[in-house]
Simulated scan of single mutants.
Amino acid sequence: MKLFTALTVLAVAAAGPAFAEGKCATTAKSKWQPKSALESQLQADGYKVKQIKVEGGCYEVYATDKTGKRANMAFNAETLEKLDNAEAGEN
């Protein structure tokens, strides 16, 4: 039974990062990265940025990818880390 419990704990711990969603910035706006840095990063990745909005401590991006497909993404405004939830700042 102890082996089963240990294996269960290991399986949950290993899967943990796969479920991490990231968070919006909680720091002062003076510590945030500029929107222009995010826009440059996205353009280098082949996106055409339509709009970047501030939602909570996140940048919410409306863009199109290389094929013209719409993309709605959210990024932590301080680290520019892409978040799993495109509406992260609205929660």
Rank of each mutant, 00 (worst) to 15 (best):
E60C: 03
Q43A: 11
Q41R: 14
Q43G: 05
S30D: 08
S30A: 15
E78M: 07
L80S: 09
N91H: 14
S40F: 06
V54P: 07
E78A: 14
A44L: 08
Q41H: 08
Q33S: 14
K53I: 00
A11C: 12
K82C: 02
F75Q: 05
T5H: 07
S30E: 08
A14M: 10
W32C: 03
M73Q: 07
G89F: 10
F4K: 06
F4Y: 08
N85I: 07
G89W: 04
A20E: 02
C58K: 01
A15K: 04
T27E: 13
E87M: 12
C24E: 02
E21L: 12
D65M: 04
V54Q: 15
M1A: 12
D45Y: 00
A25I: 05
P34N: 10
A6T: 10
K66A: 12
A20K: 08
T5R: 14
K31R: 14
F75V: 01
A14R: 02
A6G: 05
V61R: 09
Y47M: 13
L80V: 01
D84C: 01
L38K: 08
K2I: 06
K29H: 10
G57Y: 11
V49W: 10
L38D: 06
G56I: 02
T27Y: 02
E21N: 13
N72E: 15
Q43I: 00
N91F: 13
T27Q: 10
A28L: 03
E81A: 15
N72T: 09
F19P: 04
E39G: 03
N91T: 06
L7K: 01
D84Q: 14
F75R: 01
V61F: 09
L3W: 07
D84Y: 08
I52L: 11
C58T: 04
K23D: 13
L7E: 02
A63I: 00
P17S: 04
A77M: 03
A88Y: 00
E60P: 05
T79F: 01
A28V: 09
E78T: 10
L38E: 05
N76F: 01
Y47H: 13
D65G: 05
L7G: 07
A44N: 10
S40W: 07
D65K: 04
E90M: 11
S36F: 07
A11Y: 10
G57T: 09
A15H: 09
A15D: 05
A28N: 15
V61P: 06
T64V: 15
L7M: 12
E55V: 00
A25T: 00
A25G: 08
N76D: 15
E60G: 02
A25E: 00
K2S: 09
N91E: 15
T64K: 12
G68I: 00
A18S: 10
A18K: 12
A86T: 01
C24V: 03
G16A: 14
K69G: 01
E81N: 09
K31M: 00
K35N: 05
S30I: 02
E78G: 07
A13I: 07
L42F: 09
G56W: 03
P17N: 08
A86Y: 15
Y62F: 14
K35T: 09
D45F: 05
G89T: 01
K53G: 04
I52Q: 09
K29C: 01
A25C: 02
L10D: 01
Y59A: 00
K53F: 13
Q51M: 09
G57F: 12
G89H: 06
G89L: 01
V12Q: 05
E55D: 15
P17Y: 02
A25F: 04
G68R: 06
K2L: 13
K31G: 12
A15V: 00
